[in-house]
Simulated assay, not measured.
Amino acid sequence: MLQHKAFKFRIYPKLEQIVLLRKTLGCSRFVFNHFLAKWKESVQAAGKGLSYNACAAQLPALKQEFSWLKEVDSIALQSAVRNLADGFQRFSKKQNDAPRFKSRKHPVLSYTTRYTGGNIKVSANQLQLPRLGWVPFAKSREIEGRILSATVRLAPSGKWFVALVCETDIHPLPKTNRILGIDRGIKHLAVPSEGPVLINPRYTLRYERMLAKWQRTMARRVPGGSNWHKAKRNVARIYEKMRNSRLDVIHKQTTMWIRENQTICIEDLRITKMMKNRHLAKHIADAAWGEMSRQLHYKAKWYGRTIKEAPAFAPTSQTCHICGSKQAEVKDLSVREWTCQVCQTVHDRDRNAAQNIKKMAL
């Protein structure tokens, strides 16, 4: 079955290529902000916004007015207009907030170009991008399928990345009868109903002292100065290291679960509301429950698996999965092991919750 799959690589542009990349980022941002202002004016005057076609039709005249827009990839400018139209379309469906003006001080800057007429090519460890020519990149894996688009991103750490979206044929995995329930937590990242527990690496705590050191250094330096920017990049690199380490653990584990099980049952957690607990917010963010759920859903779609969710407020930890009786005292998070007063079964809190999630989701 044909699916869209992204392949992310780090690129190593030369100095003149970096200048052109930064120009493209600035021009894309300018076009986005220009048409966002036009869109808001249209809403105030006529009560409705513009369309993508209406904005794209004005793009040639804008290039004539500002000749420096002709120096960069034209498809990147069209993509900026398309992103604006998509943002307002999602806003009308109440899927996100209204688009806002972009700033060059935003920590993540990116632009998207589309494949047309062979303008994006890969040869060994070289990648051809529109207007840039051939750029060396770290080819950590083979690119599969037909290239559709490329998104170039400047990370806060100063590194350049490209994400190639390809249309590739992904074959479903052989069917199996195994069903797995997963209880996500903080002490353990995930406890399945069967199999080994996934230990929480707690990368935030691991790099906390190093992060605090560079944040103090950045606070002592003059904002905007060269030394301040150096400290800021070091802070960003530590955050990047934490994020990459966390994603590596979750990717490996979710892939293993998808390969071994036909149906995976998880709990429908209200993560945004749980983050309001100031005592647990940092640990919940470090556990990345939402990212784990996201990966399970798209990998299940790719490989022919099923994801089922237990209700958000189901008493999974307090209910005995053997006899179904409920023990109210188990609501206390400090109780890690308890004995059912009805059937006298000794339960591990998280393993019992995983069994109940499996039952309730099915």
Rank of each mutant, 00 (worst) to 15 (best):
S293F: 09
E267T: 10
S149D: 06
V19I: 14
G133W: 06
L280E: 10
L362F: 12
P156I: 01
G304K: 06
Q44N: 15
I258Q: 07
K105E: 11
S293V: 13
S123V: 10
N244M: 05
A287T: 15
H229E: 15
H297K: 15
A56Y: 09
G158S: 01
E71A: 12
G145V: 00
P156R: 03
P223L: 05
E267V: 10
D86Y: 09
L148S: 10
L173I: 00
V43Q: 14
V31K: 05
Q64V: 07
I75N: 12
C166L: 00
L173T: 00
I11P: 01
K232V: 06
N352G: 00
V249K: 09
A354M: 01
P223W: 04
V72S: 05
E208V: 06
A361S: 05
E240P: 07
V135I: 15
S193P: 02
K48E: 14
A190S: 02
I258A: 09
L148A: 07
K159F: 02
C323E: 03
L69Y: 05
C166D: 00
R209C: 10
P99M: 06
Q78P: 05
A45Y: 07
G117A: 00
Q64E: 13
F32G: 06
A98T: 06
L77D: 02
G158R: 01
D350G: 02
S193L: 03
C323M: 04
G224L: 03
P107D: 03
G133R: 05
H279A: 14
W228V: 04
V197P: 05
T339C: 06
R153N: 09
C265K: 05
Q262H: 14
P172R: 00
L2N: 08
T345K: 03
P60S: 08
K282V: 11
P196S: 03
C265T: 08
H321W: 09
K38D: 15
V342C: 07
K139T: 05
K301E: 15
G49N: 10
E65A: 14
V335P: 08
E71V: 09
M218L: 11
G324R: 03
C340N: 04
T151D: 03
A80T: 02
P13R: 04
T168G: 00
V108T: 12
R22V: 11
R305D: 11
N244F: 04
W68Q: 11
A231C: 08
L50C: 08
C265N: 09
A6W: 00
R259H: 14
M210W: 12
K121A: 10
M1K: 07
S226W: 08
V72I: 12
R29P: 12
V346W: 04
W257P: 11
Y111E: 01
I75A: 13
K102A: 04
Q78G: 02
I179M: 10
N261A: 11
H188M: 08
G145R: 01
R233M: 12
P13H: 05
N83E: 09
V165P: 00
N119K: 09
A354P: 00
F88S: 03
Q344G: 06
A353N: 00
V330R: 02
M1C: 04
W289L: 08
T272G: 10
D350V: 00
F161W: 03
I322S: 14
A236W: 04
L247G: 07
K331N: 08
T113A: 04
R270I: 10
R10D: 05
W289P: 08
G185T: 00
H279V: 11
V342I: 14
V191E: 02
E16K: 15
K93R: 15
V19F: 12
R246S: 14
